[in-house]
Design a protein around this nucleic acid. Structure first.
Lengths: 255, 255
DNA sequence: ACCTGAACACCGTTCAAGT
DNA sequence: ACCTGAACACCGTTCAAGT
């Protein structure tokens, strides 16, 4: 059944399973030290500052020594994305809807603190112990509501994806996007103004109206906390409707 | 009001506004040609195949000639992400809910055909004429439902983000993720097996149960079309609830 | 077994020079 | 005005050599 698969060594190391050497000199570094160093650099300088050389120098070895612990730079990024995640909040005793909101908000806060996660988090399925713990707690919070396991996982994906989307939007609209740094477009105000100048109302009738109506003017009209709550409630309403549907199906004996 | 901002030249060019030269030799290339070449390379070899050198050689110039049309490689990626988008479906005459579903599904299909968009699409706010056209049509489809402009834009973000999330999941689970290419993890089956081997049921009780219950076994239990529909309906139910709320508020005179 | 150092192929970007 | 070619600083990754 659950037959042994040979995992990438870096995954083994994420789970704390060192390859039990016991011959030759003692290792001077390990994966947690490497990942921490990389995370510190990314926090300070962003992802472009993270190179094999910069990470190695911060950890005190030659660049090539890192390849004993990670197979490639991409693996290093994956490890960073797991090590940076703290413990999830505990669902015990909370109504499912409260917990889901708390969980999504916490995910969002992590992303806000480490925005370099945005381009990484998307492409990697969770294989690290910390990310998987978050998934576990979300599934637990949905226990006993009549959803099957696949549905619960889908809910988790939707929530996690929503947090990502939201932070990507905030990052853009609130400034700090490298792409617009020196173009004068550094916030929602500027973005709206630029759009107003570009849009021909005949080709873009609805969008022109929205922009001219001020939908993008002012930071509080775009991707602030209320907007996050808005989309979140949208999703939670959807989950609630699903749970209600499953409950009524259960009474008459659904699938 | 809408005061003139100096836009990055590449944005001007995305909108077809060439800087009207009329002196010296006729340009041999333009932004659409560059973007098309880059898109073809990305479709064939993925994003790693796209370098200034490879794009330039395909378009028939020296690598450095591209800097007359894009300020940096990042700008080239942004341009690619706009040029690759086709015309959106037209909302005229469709019920809003049908159109939103169609729109999200079409976005998803674009991403499936050009998966290299995943890491790009997240970080760039739409400034190109093609992406903005999609936004316009979605706003139009939500006209007259009692939502304000900010809410409509939020709905658009949620839908677009959902399509991204879903394709990221499919890309992972369905194989083809470079990261797992040669590790034996090449699909939902393998992913579930790996997880089963890693998870201690005492630390990950809910997730262990889900995995052992087969939630991740078989491609049809993970990120297939039914799963896309599932999350989509979740969101649309949320939108419907919001519309109903606004309608009832309207009767008593809400904000 | 662990790490170093030299080396390789490649990358994005600059700038002066040609036409 | 448009493009080229040389050059620069840097990058990820390899491999043989040291201890």
């Amino acid at each position: 059944m659950t037959q042994e698969r040979s995992l990438p060594p870096v995954v083994e190391r994420m789970w704390g399973r060192e390859p039990v050497p016991r011959r030759g000199p003692r290792p001077r570094i390990d994966l947690p030290a490497i990942a921490s160093a990389a995370i510190e650099i990314a926090d300070a300088e962003g992802l472009p500052g993270v190179s094999m050389a910069s990470v190695a120098s911060r950890v005190g070895v030659a660049a090539t020594a890192l390849y004993r612990y990670v197979g490639s730079k991409e693996e290093l990024l994956t490890a960073m994305a797991d090590f940076v995640v703290p413990e999830p909040p505990e669902p015990a005793g909370r109504p499912w809807r409260d917990y889901l909101a708390l969980w999504a908000r916490a995910q969002r806060d992590i992303l806000l603190e480490h925005r370099w996660l945005l381009p990484i988090a998307r492409l990697t399925p969770p294989l690290g112990p910390r990310r998987l713990l978050w998934l576990d707690r979300l599934l637990a919070a949905l226990d006993g509501m009549g959803l099957d396991e696949g549905e619960k996982i889908n809910v988790a994906s939707s929530l996690a994806g929503y947090a990502l989307t939201d932070v990507a939007l905030v990052t853009t609209a609130g400034g700090g996007d490298a792409q617009f740094e020196d173009t004068g477009i550094d916030g929602a105000d500027a973005y709206g103004e630029v759009l107003a100048g570009l849009l021909d109302p005949r080709t873009y009738p609805a969008l022109s109206a929205a922009v001219r109506g001020g939908a993008l003017r002012g930071a509080e009209g775009w991707a602030d906390d209320d907007d996050f709550r808005f989309g979140l409630e949208l999703l939670l309403d959807g989950v609630e409707a699903l749970i209600a549907r499953r409950a009524s199906e259960g009474e008459v004996g659904g699938k």
